[in-house]
Amino acid sequence: MNFNAVLTIYIFEMRRFFRTITQSLISPVLSTSLYFVVFGTAIGSRMQEVEGTSYGAFIVPGLIMLTVMTQATSNASFGIYFPKFIGTIYELLSAPVSFLEIVMGYVGAAATKAMFIGIIILITSFFFVDISIAHPLAMIAFLTLTCVSFALLGFIIGIWAGNFEQLQLIPLLVITPLVFLGGSFYSITMLPPVWQTITLFNPVVYLISGFRWSFFGTADVAIGVSLMAITLFTGACLAFIWWIFKTGWRIRQ
């Protein structure tokens, strides 16, 4: 195992994150604050409590998940797509590194960035709402798993994408709608029964529900089911990446 290479890729990616700190950090924090102002304060003041929690606090886990999922995906997809686009991928392919090490470097960095942003948003939310975390360890575990699995998904998208348009396509057309409709801003028990059933086909529901459980101890779906969903998703991404590794799909002719 070429740990030096993993570390080199990781540090390289993290340095880009800190070099573009305004874009990387301030924009998610700003947009989250806007969500709090609009949803939490303006709408929340007219809403009743949701499952025993004030609406402002209720949306915190959903907001974190929304940001973390999109950030992990876009960071990882851009991280591996950019070398492909500018041609520096030749170096990764001719270096004594295995595909696993490349994945560890890029996915590790993207997950760290997303996690970092997630924690910053959590800290920001303390300024807006009164919030406590019922199961801190479970919260960290859910956050980490979500960051890693969506960074894996992003890595796959980055390998697949042939141009910048395709790079944006899946996050825009699939992930954002799934996250918005996955109960980020509402409890699925607030929906009509038909839509409740349909919603259960949205994998993001399980992630947000599980994450929310770690904050408030209540959830839309059982915590065990949530855990299984995130494990399955991570497993599916890993299996796909293993397949890419075996076939050299889209990277090694």
């Binding site: 740990f3 290479a5 080199t8 340095r15 990764l92």
Partner: peptide
């Protein structure tokens, strides 16, 4: 400097 140093690291060298 950093791009050259990156190449060294990628090849597993200290």
């Amino acid at each position: 400097f950093s791009t050259v140093s990156f190449s060294r690291g990628l090849f597993g060298k200290k």
